[in-house]
């Protein structure tokens, strides 16, 4: 019996023994016998050598079956198709934009509307490009984007603990849940007049509006993310020894991440919209020129190319942040969990 080589009570070598038992190259019968003898068998004496021999053979058979099952059952990974994949993803939207511009060009050429209502695509491009060349665009973008990002980050800082509280504390959910849903449905532009009256025409008013736009979305995203966690996961967490705080950090937040991310995405969209609304309405020299102000100027000067260029820029920022920040994040999170269905 191989048992005597093993120092008694050394648990690590017990594991060693357990691991080496099923390997076929050893004398399987003998290790199998040692295995069963070591396994608390007081009646071990009654068992014949042949019986334990078959047990050993059976064990190695089983481990072969197990290895076969592992090889067969493990899901296969499909390999990406590189260039073709990128093409199928990028081509359709490009074609759609080209078609849109073509239709625009045709409508303009047909001269159905006067020039000040529907300018030529080229005029809009010239108006846009001249502002890019003299650097005005950079200032405008910076003013708006840094406000939106700061407002959004503040929204995350407020919305996340609030979401945890609403999701996990019943009284808070009963009290705040309906209010948050109501706020989420209320267009935050409705807060602009109140904000201007309370804070005056300054950054505080604008951030107030942005926060009221983003916080409810972020909070509700986290709440629905937590609500959708399979109940077995927190139970497992408790069985593994997680307290309330550890459970929030190691189980609830990561498990709720897909829903939370969806909330963040919506929160960003709402921040951006609220900011545009606020800048469009609350204009003042003290506030600088953001995208909304730029759009407002276009309207005031009856300058349609500027208006369309401003709308184009607002769209560009929205799509850019989505593609550069949220899409990769979402992909990474979903792919890690094997939820690749929606990604195509």
């Amino acid at each position: 019996m191989p048992q005597p080589d093993v120092p008694p009570g050394s648990t690590a070598s017990e594991v060693e023994l357990g691991r080496s038992t099923p390997e076929p190259q050893g004398s399987t019968g003998a290790t199998g016998a040692a295995d069963t003898a070591g396994g608390a068998e007081p009646a071990g004496g009654t068992r014949t050598a042949t019986a334990t021999g078959t047990a050993g053979a059976d064990l190695s058979d089983l481990s072969a079956v197990g290895a076969g099952l592992d090889a067969l059952d493990a899901p296969q990974r499909d390999s990406g198709r590189g260039v073709r994949r990128v093409l199928t993803a990028a081509l359709p939207p490009v074609v759609a934009v080209v078609l849109l511009v073509a239709v625009w060009q045709v409508l303009w050429a047909a001269a159905l509307w006067p020039e000040y209502k529907l300018p030529a695509p080229l005029d809009v491009w010239t108006s846009f490009w001249s502002r890019v060349r003299d650097g005005e665009v950079v200032g405008i973008l910076w003013t708006s984007v840094h406000r939106a990002v700061l407002g959004f980050l503040a929204g995350v800082l407020i919305g996340t603990p609030l979401g945890l509280l609403v999701a996990k504390v019943r009284v808070v959910r009963a009290a705040l849940g309906p209010i948050l849903t109501g706020l989420q449905n209320l267009p935050s532009v409705a807060w602009v007049p109140a904000a201007v009256l309370w804070f005056g025409l300054n950054d505080a008013a604008i951030y107030f509006v942005v926060l009221l736009g983003s916080v409810p979305s972020i909070t509700n995203g986290l709440v629905s993310g937590i609500d959708q966690i399979p109940p077995i996961l927190p139970r497992v967490g408790r069985a593994l020894g997680a307290g309330r705080l550890a459970s929030a950090r190691h189980i609830l937040l990561p498990a709720a991440l897909p829903g939370y991310l969806a909330g963040l995405k919506q929160g960003w969209a709402f921040s951006w919209r609220s900011l545009m609304a606020a800048e469009l309405i609350a204009t003042s020299p003290r506030l600088g020129v953001g995208l909304g102000t730029f759009l407002n100027q276009g309207q005031s000067f009856n300058d349609m190319p500027t208006v369309i260029a401003a709308i184009f820029l607002i769209l560009l920022v929205g799509v850019g942040i989505e593609l550069l920040a949220f899409r990769p994040l979402e992909r990474a999170v979903l792919r890690a969990r094997g939820l690749t269905g929606a990604l195509g």
């Binding site: 357990g18 396994g39 079956v65």
Partner: peptide
């Protein structure tokens, strides 16, 4: 069947 055998093996190994 395989996992039952595995469990018995692990049980013996870990006591």
């Amino acid at each position: 069947d395989v996992l039952q055998a595995e469990l018995l093996r692990v049980w013996r190994a870990t006591n």
